[in-house]
Structure formats: structure tokens, C-alpha cells
Design a protein around this nucleic acid. Structure first.
Lengths: 368, 368
DNA sequence: TTGAAAGCGCTAACAA
DNA sequence: TTGTTAGCGCTTTCAA
């Protein structure tokens, strides 16, 4: 509000209504019985003056702001927009506003934001940004700000976790079931647990059916469209060329689709593609994308609710950890491998998803 | 912050540093000279106590919150995510946080948000939501909150406007130049000025070269992927079928691509498609999307700067209106019309973009 | 170079 | 049923 502006306060309302500020406060907050007549006069004064309570002042005394924040790593990927929409919807319903902080995958920027948020005495934080040591989040702990994380596991904070291993496994298993045996994997930034868990799932699925594995099938991406596109060119140059690829998110899968089209490879005829996330655009790609879904909207809503509960002290001291499952969504980007190979016979007898076990894995190649 | 938390205030710092709160405040804000030694003690105390100033208290006395808000109609369309990212980047650099309010194309929800924002004494608002009468924004005017709008023209507010007429014209003209004469138009929600301006541009381009126009080439969409997809099915049923389509945004163009693929029509071989917005995914569709660009990132940054200037009182009383131009980005979704028709001869002699004039237009059909 | 004290606009304990 | 008053944690004027 500019400096010269007339500021209407609760005192003005009290004066016009011929009541005390206490009474005004109480009718506004419905926090004690007030005579009908008095109430009416107050409400009229509010109306006449176009009064709106100053929630800063209220926050100062109540020690709550009605604001929660969401720290995300990027807005380039629609995934975070969709997750944010769900969070926003849930918090709006609960009377909270949400501040969106885009850390652009930079730990420094995320830290700067965290500091700002502490200063703003935000009621809670949904942290979906860079992996980091819990130690770096000390300021939050010191200031006791409730925080929940999504798909990142910090020791002392509540979180909703994805079963990334299972997702990677399902995606790969689907391709194996279709008869593919040369399956590439386009990874996300490898420092993240998401990437390594999905990779482990991929590897495990291969191992479980003794499918071959080649280090140069692992193509380093960084979650963005463009890295998927580059991966396509890389893939095309491989000899023999894989007949399928698992991209660790839909954005890279979309880039992959674009890149494959550039080099004249048809999906799924020449190469099957499966993505991860099931962002809303996934059903509108050409061909529509087979992908792994963890129900973004549902997850976001749950995540927000978890924070709200924590803010309201519902959890006492125990840290909440919820892992949500995932499903394979089959669309048009995957198709049976062409040609008949010996091991396909085995499949016709019905290949079932083997039990999940932990294996020793080859390390991811460095990001290109 | 939970109730039981130890709250460290400026008084604690003052006590530990052996100084007055005035001095602490001054060293923290660098707002008057303080003896080196004293300053050091204060800073040490801040460090030791892990003190962070409460910006609510500061906001209450300074009458500024360091918060701006962005009211958008939807997060389903990546356009707003990308615009938001640009705004967020600009405001972060200026020390502001941004609150994102997703009105979901509902005037009621937008109003509810506006009210909340007034209560929060937000420093400024970037309004990119439902078209509405300026009258409905009275509360803002009364509370003197600086507001800028994007692609929506409200009398008393600053705005960055898009040249939607020109964009519609360019898109259509491009198709005409390629020899298309049966050009469909997939519209956005017709109540919006965006939709009607882009439509006027489309119509004008047709008129300028005396190209035919058919009411049933106008297919009502609502800016979403799905409406584009439905439009494709509608298009496919037309006889004779148009050879090109202009979709009023990229999301619908992407839906169109998906739908056309479903009905077995190839783009651009059977039908050329041009979109609008140039969202980042547009270059990764199959085929890559020819579209109209107004440089989202640049626009968002400019928009934010305009608000910041207004907040700082840079404009005095004059309302700012800036119109930004647009460019045609030619990618793979458009191609020359096949077959040779008489009027193509004319084009070989060089069809130039005729001057823009205002015409009387047929009204848009009702939204389906 | 420093500090005391008066607010900023509310809520809520206490009193009437 | 209503009002007085003491904060909430800061900034800033005024005085020393």
C-alpha cells in the first residue's frame, strides 16, 4: 500500500459503529457473543468503510500467518506445476495461501528462500527441491517450522515418498514382457535418489529375467526435454540400436520422442518408449506416452494435508513417512518387439513379475 | 511456528550483545553508523542465537510486506508456469517473494483470492485471470494496491498487452502463404478478448486475400489439451475437410496433434497446424509446432518490473499500457498445401502481408 | 555514537 | 454483554 493511502483500521470501525475495538474484533472473528444490534452496527460500519482486517497484525499476535510455502526445483517441468496445483487447491480449501519458490535446482537459491521463509514466519514448508543433508536444514529445525518433503527423504521431517524402485522396475518389466531385450535407460541427474532408485528398478528387472545389460545403454539426462532429445541422437548412433528406452521422467520421454522423430525412428515401431510421472500432457503426445503414474494430484493433496496436520500438531513428535505406490499406464508408445527370439517362448508360458530383491548394481555413468 | 517454541526476538539479541534494540535494528538494516566494536558484538549475538528478524513485525510498521501475488487462471497450461517462472525470477532478484493464486478460471475464486491478498497487505498484484469489469476490482482500488495485468485490459490498471490480432493474422497468413485455403480455427473461451482478437486476426487474414470462410471451420475450444483433441475429431468429420488449422494456443494445438493422430490424419501432410504462445514444449512435439511467440520469459520479466516500478511510485498517476509484438515461429507442423489451385499463381508473384484494417466480423459460435 | 519510547493494527486476558 | 489494556516484534523519531 502506497504511503499516502488512507488506512482504515479497526479503530475506525469501532468509532463509526460506536463500539470498542474488542467488540469489533469479536464480531469479525465470531469469537464471543455480541448483541444482535451491536453486531449489525459493526457490520454496517465495516461495509461502509470497506474495512478489511490487517492479517499482518493478526499474525503478529496469533503467531500464525496463514501462509505455507512450496519450494520446487524447476517450473520447466509441468510435473511441479501439476503437483503445485493440487497443493494449492488443498490449502486454499483450508484457508491457506501458498508461496511458490522456484529454486532452479540450485542449493544456494533454495537456501536463500528458506531464509526468507523463516523471516516471514511462514506456517509450514513443502520442500521438493534439491537433495541435501539434513544438516543444512538446521535453521528450520531451530525455528521449529513444520516441513514436509516429497520424494526426498530427510531424517527428521515428514515425507511422502515414491516407490521409485518399483516404478523403474515396472517400466522395464513392461518392456521385457513386450519382448524387448535391448533396453536403454535415460537417467535424471544421478545425484538424486529418484534417479538411482529408478535405475536400480530398471537394473533389477533386467537381472530378474537375465536380460542383457550394456553400460552404453545408460544415457545421462537431467530431467529436461532437451536432455531427452539429445539422448535420442545418442541412442540412434548405438549399434546394435536398443529397441526400447525407459526415460526417468515424462519430460525426457517427450524430448526422446522429438529426437527420435528427428532421426527418422518411429515410435513404437522402431523403438518403444516409456516415461515416468504421467503428467497430463503424456496422453497427448504422438504417440501417447506409456508411463508410470503415482497420481500427482492425489499425492499433492495428501502432501498438503500432511503439512496441515503437522501444523495443527496432530502428529506429536513422531515423524511421518508415507510411501505411495505406482502404476504402469500403457498407451501407444510401447509395442511388442518385432522378430521372434528364443526366449520369447518362455514368455508365452507367462512371465510374471518376479519378487523384488536387492542386487549389487553397476554405478551410473557421469552426467554428459 | 508451533506454540511452545522459543521465540528469539530483537530484545534477546540486544541483551546478549549488551546494546539497545535500536542499535541492533540499525546494524541489521545498515541504517546508521554504529561503532565497529558494537556492531561486532551485535552480529555475534545474532549468530549465537540464530536470530532471524520477524518480517511480519517489520511489515506492520513499514507498511510493506515484500510479497507480491500472481493470480492466474489455470496451472494446467504450461504457459502460466513459464510466465510465473519469469516473474518469480525477476521478483526474487528484487527481494520479493511471490504468492501464486490459481483461480481455476473461476471469477468467484479469483475474488476470494483478491480479498485474501488485500488482507495480507500484499505489496502488489499481477492479475492474469478472468476478464471482468473494472468495477469488480473496486476493493483493490479502495485499498490502493498496485496492480498490473497481462493480456487483459482494465481501464485504471497498468498492463502489458499482447497484440492478439496481429498474432491471429500472422498465423493465418502463414497458412495462406503456404497455399491453404480451407483453414479451420480452434478458439479459446470466446468471452475473452484474447480469443476474439485472435479470431479477428484470423478473419482479417482470410478476407485480405479473399480466401473462403465457413462458420463450421470455427471450432469452439476452451484453451485445454482436451478441447484441442475434440476439435480434431470434429475437423476430421468435415467435408470437405480443411487442410489447415489455427489453434488459439499451444495446448489446444497439442491436443489437436493428438486427436489428428487418433483419426489417422498426418501433420503436416494431411493438415497443417499452427499454435499460439510458443511454450517450451512446442519444439518437442511431433512434429514440432509452428506457433506464434510473444517471448513468454521476456514478457513475464517486463511485467514484474512494471509492477515493481509502480510499487516504487515510479509512474506517478499515469496508467502504463505496453503492447508487445509477436513473431511467427515456423517449425514442422505446417507445410505447403498439396495440389495446385488457380490462386497459387498469384502467390508465386509474392503475396505480402497486407496492411491491417478493422473489418466487421461474423460472431463466434457458442462454446460447444 | 547510542537509547527511550511511541507506535504499526491487531488479539485476548482481565475486569466490569 | 462490553470495554480497558497489555502485548506481538519490530522501526523510527527525538533526545542525549
Amino acid at each position: 500500500m502506497p504511503d499516502g493511502a488512507q488506512r482504515i483500521t479497526i479503530y475506525d470501525v469501532a468509532r463509526v459503529a460506536g463500539a470498542s475495538i474488542t467488540t469489533v474484533s469479536h464480531v469479525l472473528n465470531n469469537t464471543r457473543n455480541v448483541r444482535q444490534e451491536t453486531k449489525r452496527r459493526v457490520l454496517e460500519a465495516v461495509q461502509a468503510l470497506n474495512y478489511r482486517p490487517n492479517s499482518l497484525a493478526r499474525a503478529l499476535v496469533r503467531h500464525e500467518t496463514g501462509l505455507i510455502a512450496m519450494v520446487i526445483p524447476s517450473t520447466g517441468n509441468p510435473f511441479f506445476g501439476e503437483l503445485g496445483a493440487a497443493i494449492e487447491a488443498r490449502s486454499f480449501a483450508a484457508g491457506y495461501n501458498v508461496i511458490t519458490c522456484n529454486a532452479e535446482r540450485s542449493v544456494a537459491k533454495a537456501d536463500k528462500y528458506l531464509e526468507m521463509l523463516v523471516d516471514k514466519r511462514i506456517d509450514g514448508i513443502i520442500y521438493i527441491s534439491s537433495d541435501r543433508s539434513t544438516g543444512q536444514l538446521q535453521p528450520l529445525i531451530r525455528h521449529q517450522i513444520p516441513m514436509v518433503t516429497f520424494d526426498r527423504d530427510f531424517t527428521h521431517f515428514d515425507s511422502i515418498l515414491l516407490d521409485n524402485f518399483q516404478g523403474g522396475y515396472l517400466a522395464t518389466h513392461h518392456l521385457l514382457e513386450l519382448g524387448h531385450r535391448h533396453i536403454a535407460c535415460v537417467t535424471g541427474s544421478q545425484m538424486t535418489s529418484r534417479a538411482s532408485d529408478r535405475y536400480r528398478g530398471y537394473y533389477q528387472a533386467l537381472t530378474d529375467v537375465q536380460a542383457p545389460f550394456q553400460p552404453d545403454w545408460i544415457i545421462a539426462g537431467n530431467w529436461d526435454y532437451e536432455s531427452g532429445r539429445r539422448a535420442a541422437h545418442r541412442l540412434a548412433s548405438l549399434d546394435p540400436r536398443p529397441t526400447a528406452a525407459f526415460a526417468m521422467n515424462d519430460a525426457m520421454a517427450i524430448g526422446l520422442l522429438a529426437g527420435l522423430s528427428e532421426v527418422g525412428l518411429a515410435v513404437p515401431a522402431d523403438l518403444s518408449v516409456v516415461g515416468y510421472d504421467d503428467i497430463s500432457i503424456a496422453r497427448y503426445t504422438t504417440p501417447p506416452l506409456t508411463t508410470i503414474s503415482s497420481c500427482i494430484a492425489e499425492a499433492g493433496s495428501q502432501l498438503c494435508q500432511m503439512l496441515l496436520n503437522r501444523i495443527q500438531g496432530a502428529y506429536d513428535d513422531d515423524v511421518q513417512k508415507i510411501t505411495i505406490g505406482c502404476d504402469l499406464i500403457v498407451r501407444g508408445s510401447t509395442a511388442p518387439a518385432t522378430g521372434r527370439l528364443p526366449w520369447q517362448k518362455h514368455e508365452e508360458e507367462g512371465l510374471r513379475l518376479p519378487g523384488l530383491q536387492t542386487h549389487t548394481l553397476p554405478t551410473l555413468p557421469p552426467t554428459g
